[in-house]
Write a protein that binds this DNA or RNA. Structure first.
Lengths: 245, 245
DNA sequence: CGACAATTTGATCTGTCTCAACTATGGTGG
DNA sequence: CCACCATAGTTGAGACAGATCAAATTGTCG
């Protein structure tokens, strides 16, 4: 394992959330971890399990999801490099949902004990992680509203807006084009729609001249109008710097 | 203001989440606070504001909600006596949603600074609050799945199951009957349905012999069957003691 | 008792789902 | 390098869960 430069991803994420002092950064970088490569569609963590490590996404896209009794799936959130999608496992013993890699991914696992020690030693890192957790919760709230009260067009557009804004905030999206390798099935599970209807909705978004998308890569054609049709207001992301196009 | 016996509500809630030592309990009870009575349907906290206190529900039912651009409302969560519905404001400066009283309510406001001091002094109280926050997030996840992938009957039944289980966990529900003064409009805004359809769904739940409900009071007739039709598994509530009827 | 809000019921409409087929697309092994 | 296969995307037709609109009924509280 090389120098923990891998964890700079985490720093980049925390940076988009709070200002860190040099000694805090050093403390974060000295966390022990092990790296795991995860294949597409493979579970990282399964509902019902009792993790003893927290994971940090280094590469790829990861999602949380739940399976319901009727065999349906609901995606609960997307996670990009720098995100720690299971900070909760520090406090809740058993996973109430699963985490899976959407694309091939690389993930760092950090022992809970090390995170706990870090939190005790560096209050501002603790604050950053707490803030990060609170932002997660804020995103959940927005998703409840998205899935509960918005039309198909708004829902899909909203998810695209959110991903774009979040990726830009950590420097992973270009000005107007960004790679977002989500299949229509995944978009459907995230928005509570059927894959067929997502297909038609994407078609409509293209027809309206809001996005250009050839399967893997999404291009934002008209960011202003896209936000408007999505009813998207980035305030709920609580970013330190906004992401104007 | 009498001895801070008001805050015992908070203790009861934390107790359902984690074990507290006597000195922790004492520290919680010595928090300063001010009491406010809130009328039915009045906002406690408005989206866009910058609170400097956290609030604790003492009496009544409180909800978080968002208004969308199309004038629709989505309720994001319900809160009962003992809940602190805005711990996040400790870390996120501006409210991304509003909080309102559903019934007439009494609420204690505790200065952020006092909570921060308490958190620094009593690590296990900090843990309890973190755990509480994580449980909130878990409930959000369940709601995303509820609204995204369940039928009207399942959604409404699920909300009833959750309220019952949570109220029982803090000793506010009897064995099979509990008071849950939610209007059908509110149930609709929580489930992403129309009020008319909620009405028909409640009717169906009664017809199926699952609940008895005369507006304000809901009685659980067949808890097992209700859970089953709701696809309800209380695991996501992460309670220390489960609530069998 | 009167008035306003919440619930109930009916009739109709529509957004989204389901089912089913067909067409890219990309990866694999011969 | 191509044939093949699996997976994802596309399109059409029909069905249905739930929305909308409108009116009647039942609380509920001053």
């Amino acid at each position: 394992m090389a120098a923990s430069s891998e964890l700079t991803f985490l720093l980049r994420q925390l940076d988009s959330v709070v200002e860190l002092a040099p000694e805090d950064r050093a403390a974060v970088l000295s966390l022990p971890y092990r790296i795991k490569a995860v294949a597409e569609k493979r579970d990282l963590l399964r509902e019902g399990s009792h993790p003893v490590e927290s994971c940090l996404v280094l590469e790829g896209i990861v999602c949380r999801y739940k399976m319901l009794s009727n065999g349906r799936r609901q995606i609960l959130s997307f996670h990009f490099p720098g995100d720690m999608p299971d900070l909760q496992s520090l406090y809740l013993r058993t996973m109430d949902h699963s985490i899976a890699a959407i694309t091939p991914a690389r993930v760092a696992f950090i022992p809970h004990e090390s995170v706990r020690t870090l939190i005790r030693a560096q209050p501002s890192v603790a604050d950053a992680l707490s803030r990060s957790t609170m932002i997660d919760a804020s995103i959940y709230r927005e998703w409840i509203a998205n899935v509960g009260r918005r039309t198909a067009l708004e829902r899909v557009a909203h998810v695209i807006c959110e991903c774009f804004a979040r990726l830009r905030a950590v420097g992973l999206a270009k000005l107007r084009t960004f790679e977002l390798p989500l299949s229509q099935m995944e978009l459907a599970d995230a928005t509570g729609l059927s894959n067929v209807h997502v297909n038609r909705t994407m078609r409509e978004l293209r027809r309206l001249g809001l996005v250009e998308t050839n399967s893997k890569v999404h291009g934002i054609v008209d960011w202003e109008l896209l936000q408007e049709t999505a009813d998207f207001d980035p305030a709920y992301l609580h970013l330190r710097r906004q992401a104007p196009p």
